[in-house]
Simulated assay, not measured.
Amino acid sequence: MRLSRQRGLAAVEATIVLPLILLMMMAIGEFGRLLYEYNTLTKAVRAGARTASVSSNPGNYDVSLVQDKTKNMILYGQEIEGTKTVLPGLKAEDINVSPILIDGETYVQIHVSYDWQPMFGDTFNTFFGNTISLTFPLETSMTMRALL
């Protein structure tokens, strides 16, 4: 007798729970993509710092001589300008390459601020008419001694 009254209960429960489970799965996927892009950005900055640390003018380090190669290494993964960037939306203006003098030693510091954007939209609409921005900057920097 009780079985006949609970016949559609599983379908109702699935209808209530399924959107929440899908939202959680999408959030976990976006978080994984965020970590992947941050890792890619950090590796690109590390490769750019290695490129910038090697002086093309032995004995006298000049950051302007390696700045273009360094930015290309971070943007495209190679010293010459390419067609596809390592991360979507990464621009040369996001990259700051500067020399630093510490205790008579020359160091090169690279700082990158990349605006990360979620795959499914830049904002989240709330029930009260407000929107929450989901974009935020991923920032990473690397300091390496210049090889003269």
Rank of each mutant, 00 (worst) to 15 (best):
D103H: 09
I16E: 03
S98P: 03
K84Y: 08
I100F: 02
A47N: 13
N39H: 14
R50P: 11
E30Y: 08
A14H: 02
S56W: 04
N57D: 02
E81L: 15
D94W: 04
R50K: 13
T40D: 05
N60M: 06
K43A: 15
S98I: 09
R33Q: 14
R50D: 13
Y36K: 10
I28K: 00
N72H: 09
L101Q: 12
K43Q: 14
R33T: 15
Y38G: 12
I100Q: 04
A52S: 07
T83K: 14
V97R: 01
Q78P: 11
Y36E: 12
G59A: 08
N39T: 15
M73P: 10
Y76I: 08
D103N: 14
L65S: 01
L34D: 13
L20G: 06
Y38S: 14
Q78W: 11
T83R: 08
D68W: 02
A49F: 10
N39S: 15
I21S: 01
L35R: 10
G29T: 06
L87Q: 00
K84H: 09
V63L: 01
D94T: 02
T51F: 06
E13Y: 06
G59L: 03
P99F: 06
Y61I: 01
Q67I: 13
V86Y: 03
V12M: 09
L20R: 02
R50H: 13
N39C: 08
P99K: 11
M25K: 02
A14G: 01
M73G: 11
N96D: 07
V97G: 06
T15M: 02
Q67D: 13
G48S: 09
I102D: 04
L35Q: 14
L75A: 09
E79M: 03
G59I: 05
G32E: 13
L20V: 04
L34Y: 15
A14R: 01
I80N: 10
P88F: 06
I28S: 07
L18D: 00
S53E: 08
T40P: 02
E37V: 09
K71C: 05
I21Y: 01
N96K: 11
Y61M: 00
T85S: 14
E13I: 04
Y76H: 06
T70L: 04
G29Y: 00
P99V: 11
T42V: 10
D68G: 10
T70E: 02
L65W: 00
N60L: 11
A10Y: 02
Y38L: 12
M25I: 03
A14S: 05
D62N: 12
D62K: 09
L18V: 00
I102F: 08
I100D: 04
A49D: 11
I74A: 09
G48I: 05
E93S: 15
A52Q: 07
A52M: 10
P58T: 05
M73D: 08
A14D: 04
G77F: 15
A47E: 12
G89N: 01
G32V: 14
A14L: 10
L22G: 00
A27F: 15
N96Q: 06
E30K: 09
K71D: 07
S55C: 07
A92W: 10
L41D: 03
E79C: 03
R33I: 10
K43M: 12
